[in-house]
Each structure stands twice: as structure tokens, then as C-alpha cells.
Amino acid sequence: MSKIKKVDKPVISKNLDEFFTGMAKAFSFVKRFFKEVWFPPYEFKEVLRQCYEIGYRSLPLISLTGFIIGIVFTNQSRPSLAEFGATSWLPSLISIAVVRALGPLVTALIASGKVGSSIGAEIGSMNVTEQIDAMEVSAINPFKFLVITRTLAATFMIPILVMYTDFVALMGSFASVNANELVSLSTFFVQVFEAVSFLDIFSSVIKSVVFGFTIGIVGCYKGYNSSRGTEGVGQAANAAVVMSMFLIFVEELLIMQIVNAIRYA
């Protein structure tokens, strides 16, 4: 039960009150996650099941999207570099773009659409059909079984998906470079690894962990707090996607600033 008390009359205005109450509820939801995640019972089986759902089942979509992004980004960059006779820089340019920004961002946006909406809808529908109440009355902590497992699975799987997207996008880029510039695979990847620094990879992993956590916790929060009725389930799924996408862009901006500050310090 929420500890945030309802008052009869608006304190500031109805909309602002709702905004701040919503923020407080979301904050206490995240706080509860960090409070409960360390203590048993640990639902390892459910975490693994969710890893499969979030990770493995996203592979076809991620593969297709990553490969196409690699090709398209390479093809779009080529004319600009060709003006300076610098098409040999394509592997370096693409690798930096993919590892630093495109890979994490594109994967996170796709996952927020696919995974975030599915978590929001699933938990929302469990809420509506009293399945969450059924867990509570059986002395089972639904927060542990539903929220912690899904959030952990998203936090583990998004970084793995990001690495996979990076690889697939680079393969797409190689396909284009190979077809046009006749560059071999080994030459392509030598240039890729020369361009990418440890900080790029480290920041990409950190970013994807943050994105994964965001997708999981936002999906769970929206589902867990969905209003009753089937309309509420749809709204929960929709709100999970919109909110997680918004937060991903904000986080991308903030992490990029921090990484740049470190890089150029």
C-alpha cells in the first residue's frame, strides 16, 4: 500500500499536485527496488526466464535493425568523406558512431518499445485481474517476483544486446565498405579497434546498464500502478514506452556530457 497520503483539496494546483505525487511515488518505487533486491528470496528461475524473454526474443528485431543501421549510416557518410578523399576513414567513423552512440541508443529505443511495453502490459493486466493481489494473500511478495526479476533481467540483457547490435551494425557497415571500397574484413576491424578506446567501450556498457534498468523499472512501475480496467493496461504499456524513451534521451545526454568531460580532461 502506498504511504503517500491523499489530500482532499489541491495544495498547489491539481496538475502540479499530480506531477509531484507521481514523482514521489516513482521515487519510492525505485527506492523499494534497491531496498529489496539484496535480500532473499531470490527468484533466479524467473530472472532467467525474463532474460530469455527480453534478450533472446529481441534478437531477430535487433539483428535486422542493427545491420540496416550499419549499411545506411555508412552509405550516408560516404559522400561527405569522399569530398575530402577520405573514404578510408569510414570504418573509424562508423565504429566511433556505433559504439559511442548509435548502438546503445538504438538498442535501448527498440527495447523500450518491445520490452518496456510488454512488461507494462503484462504487469498491468496482472494487476487488473487481481493476480498481484492473489500473490499477496498467499504471503508472496509480488514486488520481488515481478518487479525485481524483470528489472534485473533488463539490466543484464540490454548491455549484451548493445554489444550484439554494435557487432551487427559493424558487419552491416563492412558489407557496404567491402562492396564499394573493396576493404577486407581484417583491415576493416583493425581500423575499427584502432578508433575505439577503452573509455568508449566502458561508457557504452555503463550507458546500456542505465538504459536497461530504466526500461525495466519504468515498465514495472507503469504496470504495477495501472488503473483498473483494460483501458488501464493499454495506458500502462503506452506510458511505459513514452516515459522510458524520454528518460533514455535524458540519460544519454547526461552520460555523454560526463564522458566528454573525462575524455577531454
Binding site: M126, T129, A134, S138, I140
Partner: peptide, 28 residues
């Protein structure tokens, strides 16, 4: 502890959609 001594049968049954009947019974 008190809840374990009380059984609650829900109006819409509230069976867990993603589990089989066996898993539904085993779960609690």
C-alpha cells in the same frame, strides 16, 4: 503469517496466466 491461515478465492479466479495449472498450485 496470518494470511497463510486464510484462503482467498477471487471473483475472477486470478490464476497466473503465464503458468500451467500445476505451476499455479505449486507457486504458493
Amino acid at each position: 503469517k496470518l494470511r497463510l491461515r486464510i484462503g482467498f478465492s477471487f471473483q475472477a479466479s486470478a490464476l497466473y496466466d503465464s503458468m500451467t495449472v500445476r505451476e499455479n498450485l505449486e507457486f504458493p
